[in-house]
Design a binder for these strands. Structure first.
Lengths: 210, 210, 210, 210
DNA sequence: AGGTAAGCGAGACGGTACGTCGTGTCTTGGT
DNA sequence: ACCAAGACACGACGTACCGTCTCGCTTACCT
């Protein structure tokens, strides 16, 4: 998080309770107030903690919110439902459920917006959120290859965009982008019917680019 | 924009110059400072205008930025390149070029984030931005139907998500979502190669959901 | 008032109704809000008049308030009650009654305060207010001399402060100062008993400085 | 001042330096700008302090100025010059010298004006300024009684206004009122000649009301 | 009778100051 | 060393008035 392999020695150790209380208070504040109205002072009060304690651990609102929301993305899993179609539908619905949480909706877009001119923040978001989602694509793709639903990776073939890493990125952007856009921009729900149609489109498209 | 067909009579009329100066100053401030550091006072100073003049026209930062950025989306056009594949690739590249502008990158995500708990703002975004993009999908689809590249609309067929409006929404979310996600979240550029591969996927997928 | 011997010729003449309405509105606003909270815009609204109309006649709050309050001081009169003691007591009570009016209390001190660094304002106050009170002293003194209660003016006698003008100024400062101070600073009422005791003191003192 | 016998415990204590700097800056601003142009923000800047620090201690301009000016009145003293006449002349000249200070002139009238519709402010003025002056009258009177220049207090004698407290109030209103009125309203200087004549009048009058 | 110059209500305008709020830092004294 | 409390410098907020400036009308005097 913010203190990997601490080698602290002297003095009073930091309270682990405080960390949890702060992150929970942050999520609660996001739900009630949204990103724009959330303040460090308010989070501190909710957590029963001094502002100093927040700043000792996080550099600012952005970093705090990324960490507070990141844990939500750890709960995404890729269950083996027997077919690639079913696996993708499941992940789409999980992701949509996550974006239905007010704290995730508002925080995700806001930190992405801030990250457009803050490289450190962009990196943190990638590590804490984006890469955790992308691994599901990598895993699902490999599993589908094992099942024979997708062909095995071919060695890199030049600039036509069909090598493995490129394809993974494309799939990821299409899935995550479509779900986020439908949920937050279009403001429409992602229900099982939509998930099925979307997944059909995606798999049909994947066949086409090969 | 913010004052439709008013029938006011008395008093000094509002300055149209001020409107233009303010919106231009807003875009300039977005480029230099980004959403988070943009302040109403600074915009007013850049525009050579009093703060009250801003607040007389817009309720706050969100509303102002939506209007300031909205005009950028009016410049998107759907040129007739002879095939659906080419048309889509062109729009994808235009949209990506738009998102490469700093003022658009940062503003778009930020106002979407704020709109997650501000219904009036969501409506304004839809009218000023989203619907202006969606019309391109509607237009391109009709043109492809005229060319025979896509089948004509069938009468509504129940809950399988294949009627015209549902399909338009799906296409829109996939295109806009994928481009936004690749650009802002993944942080990768949208180049002609990517556009071609993505369009191939989309058209292949469209064939599959029919 | 604010336009002595006008030589205007063409154009629509200024509305006399507006003048009255404005001054009355000013007094009403003084009562309700006091000097500090009184605003030009509010006075204009109360008077049913545009702000422009105020500024066409008065340069600012100070000038407006002086004129609005000055008329109150015109009502002071010196009735002939038969003796100097009775005459003075009467004037003291009249003046105290005037200072009991909220519009006079607050306005008088405020414009005097402003006049401490605005010479034009000081002159205006003197003409509109101070000199109108001082004439009562001059008149009462002459009347007492006619009655034989005070000795006639002696020719100027040098620097011992007993010539006529000096004495008038002194009497005026003592009367006005004591009444104002008791009313506004000490916050005590001026009743007939106080007026009698004060007048006795004053007359006793006058005998002593001769 | 504004924080009597607090029993606070935790947190960073308020800076005493800030208090002094603010009051000094207030007096400087009064001299340069006068009451009407004095702004809280300017005082804060002069004092090298944030606006919030001012508002944490004082509710507004009125309260701040009363405190800033009050210390000037502490410097008034009653030297023993051997006779009541000389003592009074001395105090009159001291008081006149005080009112010659620009910061005192403008501030005193202005806060009195505001106090006409602000009871809390009136109380504050009384405590901080009026009572500190009145003690000089009490002291001087007692000293004169000890010298035999004035008769000792008689027991209260009913409503003829000759008991001790009433007499003190009367003397105070006459002295302070006359000096203030001559200085600020009439705009004439208080010089030793005027002080002598005025004192003669006062003492002559005091003999008359007994 | 018409022309014209000023007055007028309305309200937008560029400013300045307001009093409040949030940020991130810094003292306190108490674990 | 850590913590809760809270003061601090800073800077933006959104509002209120200021005094000025268009607007599109009256309204009275002067040819």
């Amino acid at each position: 998080m913010h203190n990997g392999t601490s080698a602290k020695r002297t003095g009073r150790p930091r309270s682990a309770d405080a960390d949890h209380a702060i992150l929970e208070a942050t999520r609660a504040a996001l739900v009630e107030l949204g990103w724009g109205k959330l303040t460090m002072g308010d989070v501190a009060t909710r957590a029963g903690v001094a502002k100093t304690t927040l700043y000792r651990r996080w550099a600012g609102k952005n970093e705090l919110v990324v960490d507070a929301v990141a844990v939500l993305f750890d709960e995404l899993e890729l269950p083996d439902r027997g077919s690639l179609q079913a696996d993708i539908e499941d992940v789409v619905l999980q992701f949509a459920a996550l974006l239905a949480l007010p704290e995730a909706r508002t925080a995700l877009m806001a930190v992405v917006a801030e990250s457009t001119h803050d490289d450190a923040l962009r990196l943190r978001i990638r590590e804490a959120i984006v890469d955790r989602q992308k691994r599901l694509v990598v895993l699902g793709r490999r599993r589908a290859q094992d099942r024979g639903e997708l062909p095995p990776d071919e060695p890199s073939q030049g600039p036509d965009g069909t090598d493995a890493a490129t394809q993974i990125d494309l799939i990821f952007d299409v899935i995550a982008g479509a779900v986020v856009h439908r949920t937050l921009v279009s403001g429409e729900p992602v229900d099982p019917t939509w998930a099925r149609t979307f997944t059909t489109l995606l798999l049909g498209g994947l066949a086409a680019i090969r």
